[in-house]
């Protein structure tokens, strides 16, 4: 029982790790305050769900389709709003995520609040194939273990990919933009094109995270993709460390362990109150870390922009 619980925490940490790699790319390495990441995640997940259920696509073909659609959404949002001042950009991305959630809640194609169900048969086949293997090493009883393994393989692979990309001249241009976009443009770099690439890549990462959310909850409904989850992403980002991909992994594991760990504490509170308390904890945590250690555990304070 308790092991199942922690496996599930691990799945969450992996999924939100992937999700937050995109935020780190945007905020930590490009200086873009993207607050619409949950919207991209929803687009990825719903595309997969709808293509499989309504169109009979294979799950494995629907995943790349979901990524492509999220990237297109990223390009669209970027072209519309990347030229705005940074605070206006942040507001515009939140508005985007709200529009996505709102549309999913109210439109016919997304099943409204009923959501989308029954797209994960192909995944369960894979999972059932993995379980006997796991049983040979005595781990066959944990039904979420296959998902845990796949999510973490994907997370580690993507993390290494992002780390590698960041070390290239391409990544250096992004950091230049984070530091001072005018100065970077004055050196001949097309700032807008790079920001667009950063946003599109983050959207792709969100779509992958959305795919795994879909497999995890097996049932898509709009509140799973509440814009608030973007804030969770930022919370674990600043916990692990600003401008550090390793920090995302550390932050995600710590964040979800602490947050889900509170479920194990025996209280006389109602379920609703416990849920509220968890959000309050996240809020207090955001306030404290912004004040006390804005660069996070593994972040580098020299790379933290302190310009007004």
């Amino acid at each position: 029982m308790s092991i199942d619980f922690w496996i599930n925490v691990g799945v969450l940490a992996g999924i939100y790790g992937i999700f937050t790699l995109g935020l780190q790319l945007n905020a930590g390495f490009t200086g873009l305050l993207n607050f619409g990441q949950a919207g991209f995640m929803a687009i990825g997940a719903y595309t997969v769900g709808i293509l499989v259920v309504d169109r009979g696509w294979s799950l494995w073909l629907a995943l790349p389709a979901g990524i492509v659609l999220a990237v297109l959404a990223g390009l669209f949002v970027g072209i519309a709003s990347l030229r705005l001042r940074s605070d206006h950009f942040a507001i515009a991305t939140i508005a985007f995520a709200e529009i996505v959630r709102y549309t999913l809640q109210n439109a016919a194609f997304s099943g409204g609040n009923q959501g989308v169900l029954g797209f994960d048969a192909e995944w369960r086949a894979v999972s059932d194939w993995m379980l006997p293997w796991l049983a040979t090493i005595g781990l066959g009883a944990y039904t979420q273990l296959p998902l845990f393994i796949v999510v973490w393989l994907a997370f580690v692979a993507l993390l290494l990919m992002m780390k590698g990309l960041q070390a290239t001249p391409w990544g250096r241009v992004l950091r230049g933009i984070r530091e001072d976009e005018d100065a970077t443009a004055a050196l001949g770099k097309d700032v807008f094109a790079y920001k667009l690439q950063s946003l599109a890549l983050a959207a792709a990462l969100a779509a992958v995270a959305g795919f795994f959310v879909a497999l995890n909850v097996t049932y898509l409904y709009p509140t799973v993709f509440d814009p608030t989850f973007t804030f969770f992403g930022y919370a674990l980002l600043v916990l692990g460390g600003f401008a550090s991909y390793g920090g995302v992994a550390l932050g995600s594991v710590l964040f979800w362990t602490l947050l889900e760990g509170t479920r194990l504490i025996e209280t006389s509170l109602s379920a609703g109150q416990q849920a509220s308390l968890r959000f309050i904890i996240v809020g207090v945590f955001l306030l404290l870390i912004s004040r006390l250690r804005p660069q996070g555990l593994l972040g580098n304070v020299n790379e933290m922009r302190v310009r007004p």
Binding site: Y234, G283, L286
Partner: peptide
């Protein structure tokens, strides 16, 4: 001399605290 990310996150944190204290 907090940077804009710090301010954004603090505002978001405060919002969560207020809303969910009410809900609590």
């Amino acid at each position: 001399k907090a940077g804009s990310l710090q301010l954004f996150l603090s505002a978001i944190g405060l919002g969560l605290v207020l809303r969910f204290t009410v809900q609590f």
